[in-house]
């Protein structure tokens, strides 16, 4: 479970490091491009989760596809 331990510790470290004050270099009023729907990694969740399912059922690789995930439900 070494990988799991590293994974969890990295997560805790990143969460705790949020306590530090770092000035955001992109101000909230400069985020109109980033907020555009075309900049979303999953603009249409119903469509991307279907495509992940198509590939997961036909390839050995799985995981880290983006979105919430939750397993393929396929064998």
């Amino acid at each position: 479970m070494d990988k799991l331990a590293i994974f969890t510790m990295a997560g805790i470290f990143l969460l705790l490091s949020g306590c530090n004050k770092i000035e955001p270099w992109v101000k909230p009023y400069e985020r109109d491009h980033l907020a555009d729907p075309i900049m979303s990694f999953t603009r249409d969740p119903v469509s991307s989760s279907y495509l992940h399912h198509v590939f997961q059922a036909r390839e050995s690789a799985r995981g880290a596809e983006g979105g919430q995930g939750g397993g393929c439900g396929c064998n």
Partner: peptide, 21 residues
């Protein structure tokens, strides 16, 4: 399944995400 992801605003025009599962 264990997931960790970090998404980062890099600039006014660029986003990046690293994900591990």
């Amino acid at each position: 399944n264990y997931r960790l992801s970090v998404s980062q605003v890099l600039s006014k025009n660029m986003l990046m995400e690293a994900a591990m599962e």
